[in-house]
Design a protein around this nucleic acid. Structure first.
Lengths: 147, 147
DNA sequence: TTTTTATATTATAATCATTCCTAAATCAAA
DNA sequence: TTTGATTTAGGAATGATTATAATATAAAAA
């Protein structure tokens, strides 16, 4: 990543923190910098290890808490909202799902309702393509009511 | 679900087991029956509880192992292959990913490479739509070589 | 600048999902 | 029926995540 892009991202980070009234602590800044410097979509553990080289005293709890705070304020995103447990489906033909971000409810989508995507060349070029999944992330009616 | 659909699914199950040389044990059959009778995309724990009512002696290990065996033989599918740990992304604008089923490597897809999907009415009807994610599931070059 | 209040961090314990291991049971093949 | 392979139960071990309580830091008010 070039310097300009990095500067822009950091400016946006400060702006978002100001907007959300989050103080930019050294730990938070280090965690964010690790994220923008890492293309691997890191796990909390990877981030912890990275940040630890600058902050030997940082704790796991801080990393977890900070990431959650960032996510809730639109500073970073999760790659999947279904990370906490395995979920199985007896239907093996390709079809797609609606996922509630809150309660993790999963609903099948009627296949006729959704177009077929072309597979990007980037996918087939270096990899063996298997299939693709589409997750429509929502807040379901029940969770909305609870707010 | 009506009786016919159920019968068809069970026939297909027996056929697939024969094909894959998997014996149809009472536990396996009960786990499969639970799956086809449950629209919630159940977790191993939910399946365990369900099956326990008929097999009080069944163990968690059996449920986990059976589900993995089923998945590897195309009898059931996982809703996501990124279930075991949180993964974060500093990019909050919608974009999509290539995911290796084996090593869980995650790669960003150039957004211009992929069409925009229409949001199905089923998504907007009862839920608050947030965004959608597309995961292209692959075996990456490195994992392929290791085979 | 001090005092107060709220927020953030650390360290550790607790929890929860998943996997590993071993012995017993069952199944399949010779 | 003996042998070998597969499957299962049960419990221990591991790994990720969350909760808790005490301390430290930052922001707001005086």
């Amino acid at each position: 990543m070039n310097k300009e892009t990095r500067e822009k991202l950091l400016d946006a980070f400060y702006a978002k923190c100001r907007e959300s009234r989050l103080s930019v602590t050294p730990q938070r800044l280090a965690i964010y910098k690790t994220l923008i410097g890492n293309k691997e979509h890191p796990s909390p553990e990877m981030i912890f290890k990275d940040v630890q080289s600058q902050f030997p005293m940082i704790s796991f709890a801080t990393v977890y808490k900070t990431l959650e705070t960032f996510e809730q304020n639109g500073i970073v995103s999760k790659v999947t909202h279904l990370h906490n447990t395995l979920r199985y489906d007896p239907m093996t033909e390709q079809h797609h799902h609606i996922v509630c971000k809150r309660c993790k409810k999963i609903i099948d989508i009627d296949s006729t309702e959704i177009e077929t995507l072309k597979i990007p060349s980037q996918v087939t070029k270096d990899h063996i393509f298997i299939d693709y999944d589409v997750h429509f992330n929502v807040i379901c009616a029940e969770c909305k009511m609870k707010e």
